[in-house]
Structures are given as C-alpha cells and as structure tokens.
C-alpha cells in the first residue's frame, strides 16, 4: 500500500525503530495493560503517561489520536451499559443505584480498551503497512500469512485504483457522486468491483511471478538489531509491564 491509511510519515526515533521490535513492544504493552488489576487506577495513569511520552517523541499530535480512537465507540457503549445490567451489590452514583461490580467492569473496559486502541494507533501511525508485514515476516509469521498479507497490501492499491477509475468514468458520463448515492452504488457494485479488481489482481500476480516473486518480499537478511535498540524500542512496554508487576504483586 503506497500510503497507509493511518500512517503518518515522519523520521522520529519512534518511526525508526525496526518494525519487529515495535510489534513485540506493542503486544507486550497491551498485554501488560490488560493484565493490570482493574482497581489499580494509578497504574493506568502511568500507562497513559507512557503512551503520551511516546507520542511526543514520535511528533504525532494528541488530537490526531483522539479523532482516530472513536473506532472504540461501541465498547464505550458497553462500558456505560454494564453498571446498569450487572448483578451484585449496588452503590449510589449521582443518586442512581448501579452495580458496583458493573461499574468496575465498565471502567475496566473503558480504560484497557482505550489504552489498547491508543497503543495500536501509535504503531499504525509510525509504521508503514508494508514494514508491519516485514516485521511479521522477521518475527517468523507463517509463510502463508506473509504471502496473503503482502498480496493484500498490494491489492488494496488495485482496489482503490479501480474505485477511482470507476468513479471518474461515472462522473465524466454525468453521474452525480453525492456520498449517499455513492454508498448505494458501491454496495450494489461490490461484486463488480471484486471482479474488476480480481482480474487486475491476477495480472499483477503474474507480473510479480514473472519477476521471480516467491511469496515474500525480498528483504535480504535483516540488519541485526543491537541490544540497545531493543531496549530503546521496548522501554515503553517495559515501564507498562513494571506498573503491572507492581500492581499485581500480592500484598
């Protein structure tokens, strides 16, 4: 994919961390967040602080993340509903009796879900899609995965190109592409779009084979990642994991 949907080009230290390091760090960080006991409010504060620090190093504004985080909206709904539908002892919040357990569960989803989305967005904002696949390739993702993912990213361009061509062809012939119209036409045309893209995709696949493609990107041997870069790239995850360890320590 030439321009990732969420990728923000940049040359910050965060952008430059090798993708395999970033992937592992992101997974470790989210796992640390999820494993943190929900009553350890302070730990989530530390996690958020770590995420903010990474953003400032990456040079991506907070507002950008805030707008993208709405993908999580359905879960906010769940978090809001839980206090009302859960069982167990009740507490009063603003004069309304809600389930104490539900309240905590709601908070849990809200805090962990939000942090999870923010961490994943950080990864997406600072890593090119194809580097993500390269990172997975270096982390020994199975061959089938790398093959499908590589073709998938290539084909997203093909599909976008087909959509653009179809749209231009329609406008030039007097169609009025208002958004709703377009959504309807796209829904109806999904099968056609699929076919057009597939036939082009077949040719693209042939062209790749013709140049000796063997299912993965010819990345060459990965430049060895020094211990220092692993530590630097992994440090945010390390802080989050420490917060988890302290919070989860049986006292």
């Amino acid at each position: 994919m030439s321009g990732g949907v969420l990728y923000r080009p940049g040359d910050s230290p965060v952008h430059r961390i090798p993708p395999q390091v970033k992937l592992l760090a992101a997974f470790a960080a989210v796992l640390g967040v999820v494993a943190t006991p929900r009553e350890a409010f302070w730990a989530f504060g530390i996690d958020l602080f770590v995420v903010l620090a990474v953003w400032s190093v990456a040079g991506v504004p907070v507002g950008w993340f805030a707008r993208r985080a709405v993908i999580e909206a359905p879960f906010v709904l769940l978090a809001v509903v839980l206090p009302f539908v859960s069982g167990g002892p009740r507490v009063d919040v603003l004069g309304v009796a809600v389930s104490q357990d539900g309240l905590l569960a709601g908070w849990n989803i809200l805090a962990k879900g939000t942090l999870g989305v923010l961490i994943a967005l950080t990864l997406a904002a600072t890593t090119q899609p194809r580097d993500l696949v390269l990172g997975l390739q270096r982390l020994r993702a199975p061959a089938w995965f790398v093959t499908i993912a590589t073709l998938m990213l290539r084909y997203v361009d093909v599909i976008a190109g087909e959509l653009r061509r179809t749209r231009i062809a329609r406008i030039s012939r007097g169609d009025d592409p208002r958004f709703l119209w377009q959504a309807g036409a796209v829904a109806r045309g999904a099968g056609t779009l699929f076919l057009r893209s597939y036939e082009r995709g077949e040719r693209v696949h042939r062209a790749m084979l013709a140049r000796g493609w063997a299912g993965h990107m010819p990345a060459g041997p990965a430049a060895p990642v020094g211990a220092l870069r692993w530590v630097a790239g992994g440090s945010p995850a390390l802080v989050i994991a420490t917060a988890w360890a302290v919070a989860a320590w049986p006292v």
Partner: peptide, 15 residues
C-alpha cells in the same frame, strides 16, 4: 526470460 507487461500499472508497485 524477462517480460515487460503491456500495462505498466500491473508491473509497478513498490513505494
């Protein structure tokens, strides 16, 4: 055998 395809868009895809 090196084949240059009829449509360059089929052939070019790297960044």
């Amino acid at each position: 055998v090196g084949v240059v395809f009829q449509d360059p868009d089929d052939q070019l895809f790297m960044p």
